[in-house]
Design a protein around this nucleic acid. Structure first.
Lengths: 115, 115
DNA sequence: TTTCTATCAAACCACCTGGTTATAAAAATG
DNA sequence: CATTTTTATAACCAGGTGGTTTGATAGAAA
């Protein structure tokens, strides 16, 4: 379902501290735009634009409640990013461990024979 | 050492498909700029700029080998991003599970009493 | 030394970002 | 109805991105 190109939008969305703070707030539950804007020294349209980028990335979704448009965090996009990173980190760690073992082997081999 | 603001640079670096592909290549081991540029229909300076952004984020480092500047992947920055994402995803999953349980409770409670 | 190879740096471009203000629309409230 | 609240949209601006071409530099190789 979720295209891999989506990673572009997801990582772009995560690259701004304001948007990461909004996500942090949303972890505690749904919030309206005004509620999300409150902690920031920033205009409401600025927050709306941040929300739009989070939405484009699939990291949040919006409901309708009278004039309010409560924003909710969405797990799957968060998972897509985590999965991508985790897979790379895992391979890197394996290679790192292998290199480490190799270096140890070389060192040990050099201890008794002269060349 | 690694500042948390660093997450900005890390996620920005990860938000471009060319840079993610470069990282994917580097997982297999060190590579020179020319080697990294080869698979892409893109000029060498463009690749150099991508590498610079990866380096700024601490995701890669460069050695010197004659005229060559081999690039190597760096684990810790990758880990910083993974950790951030993992922590949020964990809380989200907990809340999700809690909400799920709550909804089940409500449904079960509604089965025998009328209101 | 001259030449070739690998890389970087500068100048330039179109486009996106992150913010602003001002305005409009939609629904609640008086 | 008029007003207030909540949100979105448009127009604008400074600065960053992602690419280009052109030219400089460092080191190997002829």
């Amino acid at each position: 379902m979720s295209k891999p190109d989506n990673l572009d939008a997801i990582f772009i969305a995560l690259s701004d501290p304001t948007r990461r703070a909004i996500l942090a707030r949303l972890i505690e539950g749904e919030a309206s735009v005004m509620e999300l804007a409150a902690p920031f020294a920033m205009s409401q349209p600025a927050i709306s634009k941040h929300i739009k980028m989070l939405e484009r990335a699939g990291l949040v979704s919006r409901r309708r409640d009278a004039q309010r448009r409560p924003v909710k965090i969405e797990g799957p996009a968060l998972k897509a990013a985590t999965d991508w990173l985790e897979s790379y980190r895992k391979v890197w760690e394996q290679n790192y461990a292998r290199l480490d073992a190799l270096l140890n082997d070389l060192q040990r081999a050099g201890e008794s024979p002269k060349n």
